[in-house]
Design a binder for these strands. Structure first.
Length: 331
DNA sequence: CTGACCTATGAGAAGGCCCC
DNA sequence: GGGGCCTTCTCATAGGTCAG
């Protein structure tokens, strides 16, 4: 029961609300549709609301709403029924909903099937990624890291995104029993240095430890699994702009067009090489910039090929952002 | 202006807490 | 242990921003 409600809600708010309604009221509504000689209630959203076809739909919608609302069909939502008899007002609500809200969705969906659903999923993916960024950053601050390390995490683009487990058609993936599998899939972030990814995983483990030790367990979080074969999502393409250089995987970075590498000429270094970090040696956390660079940072920076002074000067000459030469494209 | 990208916020569900 | 309140989770939607 609880499962069913959750799933109907997960598909759509409207579907979930219909699910909560007494079946009797649904029968009243459907028989009204049939009594007008219609097989289905399907207004022509893209057409004129004044057409006979659409007027019938509007009439059915308002009449059935009035009929069942007065019988407390929507009591769960505790509606205010003061204006229930105001046909003009209900008509305006109806038209706003059908010819504005639904119209927009229909137009979007016509352009690309599945785009409405994808938009909703993306929204939540963005939000989760933002929260990941905030929580990791907050943790680094609370652990007393220097700003060069915190800069690894501050921008949302520093972090990979995740999506619920849906198949290519946007349908929930089902388990053997036919129930939807609700889990979160984490996409790869190929631009990011695996060294940094390891660092974030350690951060996450520590965050989980803090959470378990201090917070009450309110909610079972959905399991998160990594997407196989290093698949990247389309949300993950953009680079963070203010990150330390070693956020990037060196080979990946060095293969980038000079125009992109040029954005990071002033970027700092956040962490020592992996082999220079050990449990009993974490002075890198507190060293000031100059001694840090001398002891650890310069070694890291050597691995990155930034555009030379000559290249940068050449790039300036070829005009700031205005039409570029064809040979810009080759790297 | 339009579309892509992203944020802010409301709302329902679930589970813990508190008190009897 | 169970009813009511509180917190935190997720989802959905509306709204904002910005580049082209």
């Amino acid at each position: 029961m609880r499962q069913a409600a959750y799933h109907s809600r997960a598909r759509s708010q409207i579907a979930a609300n219909i699910y909560e309604m007494d079946e009797h009221f649904l029968r009243v509504t459907y028989s009204a549709i049939l009594s007008f000689g219609l097989q289905k209630w399907r207004p022509d959203v893209l057409g004129n609301f004044g057409s006979a076809y659409n007027q019938v739909h509007e009439l059915i919608a308002i009449k059935t709403f009035q009929t069942i609302a007065i019988s407390h069909a929507y009591s769960r939502l505790s509606p205010n029924l003061v204006n229930l008899a105001n046909h003009k007002l209900l008509s305006r609500f109806y038209r706003n909903y059908v010819y504005s809200y639904i119209y927009k969705l229909a137009k979007k969906e016509m352009k690309a099937a599945g785009s409405v659903k994808k938009g909703i999923r993306d929204t939540n993916t963005y939000k989760r990624r933002k929260e990941t960024a905030e929580e990791r950053t907050e943790f680094l601050r609370s652990e007393g890291y220097r700003s060069r390390v915190i800069a690894l995490s501050e921008e949302v683009e520093c972090h990979s995104d995740d999506e619920p487990s849906f198949d290519a058609n946007g349908n929930p993936i089902l388990d053997a029993a036919g129930n939807p599998v609700y889990s979160i899939s984490i996409y790869a972030k190929s631009a990011r240095n695996p060294h940094i990814t390891e660092f974030f995983r350690a951060v996450d483990a520590a965050r989980a430890q803090v959470k378990a030790a201090t917070k009450k367990r309110r909610h079972i979080a959905l399991p998160r699994t990594r997407v196989p074969s290093n698949l990247e999502s389309d949300i993950s393409q953009r680079f963070p702009v203010g990150v330390p250089l070693d956020w990037f995987e060196p080979n990946y970075f060095n293969a980038l067009p000079a125009a992109l590498r040029a954005n990071y000429t002033d970027a700092g270094i956040a962490l020592p090489l992996a082999e220079d970090i050990s449990l009993d040696n974490n002075d890198y956390k507190t060293l000031k910039k100059t001694p840090f660079m001398k002891k650890y940072g310069n070694k890291v920076k050597e691995r990155y090929h930034l555009p030379s002074e000559e290249e940068l000067a050449q790039m300036d000459k070829s005009g700031d952002g205005t039409s570029s030469d064809e040979d810009d494209m080759d790297v």
